[in-house]
Amino acid sequence: MAKRIEAVNVSAYYGSFRAIDNITMAIEPKSVTALIGPSGCGKSTFLRSINRMHEVLPGAKVGGQLLIDGQNIYDRDIDVTAVRRMIGMVFQRPNPFPTMSIYENVVAGLRLNGVRKKSLLDAACEKALRGANLWNEVKDRLNRPGAGLSGGQQQRLCIARTIAVEPQVVLMDEPCSALDPISTLAIEDLIAELKNEYTIVIVTHNMQQAARVSDRTGFFSIDKTGEPGRLIEYDDTAKIFTNPSVKRTEDYITGRFG
């Protein structure tokens, strides 16, 4: 099920500004990969170019190749919506659809892609909510608005919504940055479980989190503002956090950033 991702010389632009430059990295299926680095170094940009969300912004372009199981998703004859269904994304701020109930939020991806059958939707809803560790909290109020949940619950709702369409890769952009420690822990546990089925890429500013949840870690950085972000080091998480081979990685991880 889970797919292997291979970025080959990926660059991304906002208009004429190059935000990331020549990123090359391979992400193994059924693993958790963490992306860390200082603010503005292009982690989100890179993440968004993995499921073709980058080009949603006006003037934004991507260069290079992004291979999912060997298939370049930037080929001309690729169906963008199919790519995004295969590669789900969870955003930094929870963004449940405000006009929809919890149930409708979870099945939105299925329903708006043409699935009508009530029994199918019901089953998918329960499975996704259980998968996101939210079922027990909301099973009695599936018809209440999704926006009425707490921040942590909303974020898990968004995760449920993402896994309900059964993607093969899940991208998460700082999914815990707006959450309290307990919700964060719940989501980290969830990531550990999701790993059995999905390939996961997570951007985080929290080193402990990266160390706890990921198998491999990529460190991004920029030389100075206005320069594009680059992948400085990419290795097993244990190695990055104990014995990095690049001095800049070590400086960043130990807090001597500059």
Partner: peptide, 12 residues
Amino acid sequence: ALREGAYALGIP
């Protein structure tokens, strides 16, 4: 963010 959330689900 709502539009992006929907696009990310593969909704046209």
